[in-house]
Amino acid sequence: MSTQDDIELPETLSYHDWAAAVREDRLLGQSCEECSHVGGVPSGACQQCGSRDLTTVELPTEGTVHTETTINVPPEGFEERGYQVAVVTLGDARVMVRIEGEHVDIGDDVVLSGFIDTDEDHPAPTFETAD
């Protein structure tokens, strides 16, 4: 097993790199060399300025809840109901995640807890309360 420090960050961040990182309890984003915007997921160009000069960055795994909802009418393929989905702020980026464990509110501190991949092997990061 390699530790986080051993892993070289990909020069150009792809979905497959991002997904592999999620499965290793890590979150990768992109920082724009032109305007310093940090995107929470891979993109071909900066969402703010359009520059392709992006550097892959490791996002913090602790942050705060930006907004959240609890979904009681799930789509096909999600059998349970009453799960919480949130957008969390991680440093300069925001990422959509699933919340595990106790309910969290906007402004609460949360920490990465793992991932789910119930949707045709597409992983989604999970977070839980940091308290």
Binding site: T67, V73, P74, V85, R98, T118, D119, H122, A124
Partner: peptide
Amino acid sequence: QYEQPTGLTFPGVFALLTKRHMH
């Protein structure tokens, strides 16, 4: 890749926008 795997629905999408507005 980055939204559907969380189990997000369309009521959920607008709930996320609206919750922030409420806040």
